[in-house]
Amino acid sequence: MDAILATGIQALTGIASLLLVSLGLAIVFGMMRVINLAHGEFLMLGAYSAILAVEAGVNLWVAMLVVAPVCVGLLGAVVERLVIRRLYGRMVDTMLATWGLSLALIGAVTMAFGNSVAGFSAPLGSVQIGAYSTSGYGLFLIGATVVLLLAVWMVLRFTPVGLIARGTMQNAGMAAALGVPTERVYALSFAAGAAVSGLAGALMAPFSGVVPTMGTAYIAKCFITVITGGAAMLAGTATAAGLLGSVNTIGTFAFTPVLGEVLMLGVAIVLLRLLPQGITGRFFRRAL
């Protein structure tokens, strides 16, 4: 019983972290149909801003939960203004420009902080479950992911801003005709997506070492999760993360971490062959 519980928590942590790192990308892709290849670097910058804040004497929780999203959100706003705005509707060009941005950010951070691993250890110690112990931070991560997901859902579902956002997402032309400033909605969505990515990066920092290239380790996983999820950004990303995260955890337990990842990507490709529009292209169509 304890063993099952401990393994279950392990799997849930895997799913939660996958969902966490993908959510920012899902917001940007779902709202704007922009594929942001610099997403991994937004995660990386979130982690770095948290570390810098901690080193400057800021409380760890404030650094992770406030400083990181604010910093990366501001950066996202600048990037939207300078680059993304000029390329709306040109999907491939946006992909290429954000790829360039990703390379440039990796280069800039390497120059500023060197190619060494930084990081802080996970707070909260460990929790005993019968004969097993699991990290308290893992449990916190699961909780934080659920709260974040609920928060985004509630903003979209129940607030006036969310109504405008959903309207723009469904039919931008009609929204504009009704007087919605769609440009500003897009700018805000991109900044919000970047902020969520920054938060995710900071929260993941204790798990993975923080290096300038840490984004590249996540980018493929995030993409495949969002794309497998399909059109409905929250329901899709959550179901895809649940499915792929479990596959990854099972593969990691049964074989090696590398094979776990290979297995996960393989399952995603097979899934896309069967459901070319993603999971929510067929199931949960009306979900958000």
């Binding site: 680059v83 000029r86 390329l87 060009d93 290429l96 420009a97 790829w99 360039g100 941005l101 990703s102 390379l103 440039a104 950010l105 990796i106 280069g107 800039a108 390497t110 120059m111």
Partner: peptide, 13 residues
């Protein structure tokens, strides 16, 4: 990487 990335962004724009 910084130079390569900037070249790409500028080229696309």
């Amino acid at each position: 990487n910084l130079i390569l990335g900037l070249v790409l962004v500028v080229a696309v724009l």
